[in-house]
Amino acid sequence: MNEPLSKDAVAHIARLARLELGEAELSRFAGQLSAVLEHVEAIQRLDTAEVPPTSHPFELVNVLRDDERSACLPREAVLAAAPAAQDGRFRVPRILGEAP
């Protein structure tokens, strides 16, 4: 865990993040991300065995809305923003795999 990120690891992360990176970028990011990770790894040495995680600063619960209609957007406006649209829908290039 403490070794710097390899180029292969960066390439794997880029795939997960849907980024297309060239060789030069992969090398550069591998170095820069490794440096950041080495710095932040300091917190792994803190003893937090008894400390619960915080994902939100405040303990709000049960924020709910009533099941009531509100306005939708006009379809023309929605599709006007789209890079490609057809038959009232967003058009995308072919999809290679089914949704997981």
């Binding site: 009531e68 209609r69 509100s70 957007l73 599709l79 038959d87 009232g88 829908r89």
Partner: peptide, 23 residues
């Protein structure tokens, strides 16, 4: 439900595409 899980758009089947949408 009458509306979607996180917004007030109608939860309806069979409407014209992309008409029951909001930000």
């Amino acid at each position: 439900t009458k509306t979607k899980l996180f917004c007030g758009c109608p939860n309806a089947f069979g409407d014209e595409p992309n008409t029951n949408v909001c930000p």
